[in-house]
Structure formats: structure tokens, C-alpha cells
């Protein structure tokens, strides 16, 4: 029986490695860092999420929308866990277009917890027009939409270099060693000390990259923490049940001479 499950396991491993291969056709070694949310008990680092939110709002959000995330999410468990007052204040600091009102007109009001994150542009066309034809992708599920995931985003933010000799770049195109094809339309956004963290953390490029990537992981998987917690419980429960059923099975089959 051990042999049987070994075979099954090796088949599974084979399939996983196959799907890995299919996703990483282009081979670049991404920068690595230890993510607090990896592993069986992985949780988000609250501080990193709050700092990451700050980087997103002060830097990324001028071009990148985040249309599936609401201000109320900022105060929810498993997220940055701002207090409800803080989240309300954050929401109120944005102007939201609402309406039409009874006169049939659109109006602006301060944001509420139930509002989705305000978008930097009216629509995709407006975003493209403002960014030299390139659409800054929505960031809600961005880390899940890129083959390398968090390591890719983390590396990309730190991957800006002068182009090697022989590579000519057009106006508005930049060289990034982690970008597919190395040409990217987003300029380098991060520089040391760009934001001022309230908790006194030093805002190096590396630190900001890590914080904002952690924040993006949370926006893509807001229930990651409860998934890990439930997963551990579910698997422990299943293992215990499996052991009990195994002994029941031995007992039942002992009534006849054949072994299971």
C-alpha cells in the first residue's frame, strides 16, 4: 500500500512540475525575500500591509486602479486591519462621483466604507491616453495574473537598469531586467525616501517594494489567512479520520483471512 501511494504521489509531483514548466517558459531568476504569508501558517505582516497601502496610495494609485477592493476591506480581519475610524477617514479623503440625484445630476461626495477604491482614470481609453498608449493594469489581482507572482512584482520594482549597449529605447520606454522582453512603459517609480512611513521604518526601495507587494498579495487574496487556518484544521481533521478509518478497516477485514 505504501508503494501504491508513493506511485500516486510521484504522479502528482510530475503533474505539478509539468504545470510549473508550462508557466515559466522564459527563465529569469527573480529576487527573493522571505514572505510572511507563505507556508502552512503564513500570515500577513500587518505593518507591511499598512505601509504597502501607503505606497500604493501615494505612488501606484495615480495610474493603477484597484476596482475590486473597497475601503471597508481595509478594516477587515486578515487585512491591514486599520481601525474602522481610520478606514472611514481614509475613505472620506477621496472624492467619489455619485448620482444621478433627484435633479438628474451627478455630484461628488466624500467616500464611504462601502465604496470601491476610486479609479485614477474615467476609463481604459483615458488611462491609455495619459500613459503613452499603455494601459496601467488594474492591481486588484495583479500578483495572481503574473507567472512569477509576488517574486516577479517584487523584482520588477527593483529591476530598472541602464540598457546594455546596443539596445535602443524609444521615447517613454524603459529597460527592466525582469520584464518580459526587457522593455517596459512604466518608468522607475521608487527611490529611497520617496514616502515617509508613519512607523519610522526606513523607506528604502527594497523595503517599499516588499511592502507594496505584500499589500498586492492581500488585495489579490483577501482571505488568504483564513484559508491557511482552515486548511490546517481541515487537513489535521482528515488525517485523524483517515487513521481511525484505517484501523476500522483492518478490524473489519480481519473477519476474513484476506489482508487489505
Amino acid at each position: 500500500m505504501k508503494f501504491f501511494f508513493l506511485k500516486l504521489l510521484s504522479l502528482t509531483v510530475l503533474f505539478i512540475s509539468l504545470s510549473f514548466n508550462s508557466n515559466s517558459a522564459e527563465k529569469v531568476e527573480y529576487l527573493k525575500t522571505d514572505w510572511s504569508f507563505k507556508g502552512l501558517f503564513g500570515k500577513f505582516d500587518r505593518g507591511a500591509l499598512q505601509r504597502g497601502y501607503q505606497v500604493y496610495t501615494e505612488v501606484c494609485s495615480s495610474c493603477h486602479s484597484m476596482k475590486y477592493v473597497s475601503y471597508r476591506n481595509l478594516a477587515e480581519k486578515g487585512g491591514p486591519e486599520f481601525t474602522e475610524e481610520q478606514a472611514k477617514a481614509i475613505a472620506a479623503s477621496f472624492e467619489v462621483t455619485d448620482g444621478p440625484n433627484d435633479d438628474g445630476e451627478m455630484f461628488t461626495r466624500p467616500g464611504k466604507l462601502s465604496d470601491k477604491f476610486v479609479m485614477p482614470y474615467e476609463n481604459v481609453k483615458a488611462a491609455q491616453a495619459a500613459n503613452g498608449g499603455a494601459y496601467p493594469p488594474d492591481m486588484s489581482v495583479l500578483v495572481k495574473a503574473r507567472g512569477g507572482g509576488v517574486n516577479y512584482i517584487y523584482s520588477l520594482l527593483q529591476g530598472y537598469e541602464d540598457p546594455p549597449t546596443g539596445i535602443d529605447l524609444d521615447e517613454g520606454v524603459y529597460y527592466n531586467k525582469y520584464m518580459y522582453g526587457n522593455k517596459i512603459k512604466m518608468a522607475n517609480q521608487l527611490s529611497d525616501g520617496l514616502v515617509e512611513y508613519a512607523d519610522g521604518t526606513k523607506a528604502t526601495v527594497e523595503q517599499m517594494s516588499k511592502d507594496v507587494t505584500t499589500f498586492l498579495m492581500w488585495t489579490a487574496e483577501p482571505h488568504l489567512e483564513s484559508r491557511h487556518q482552515m486548511g490546517f484544521k481541515a487537513i489535521v481533521y482528515l488525517i485523524i479520520l483517515t487513521i481511525l478509518v484505517y484501523f476500522s478497516m483492518k478490524r473489519i477485514w480481519s473477519r476474513i483471512e484476506t489482508e487489505v
Partner: peptide, 11 residues
């Protein structure tokens, strides 16, 4: 389901 839910899908 709980630990690598997206590994079999495509980014």
C-alpha cells in the same frame, strides 16, 4: 485547495 489553489491554473 488550501495551500496552492492556483498552481494548476494559468496566471
Amino acid at each position: 485547495v488550501f495551500y496552492t489553489p492556483n498552481i494548476l491554473g494559468h496566471a
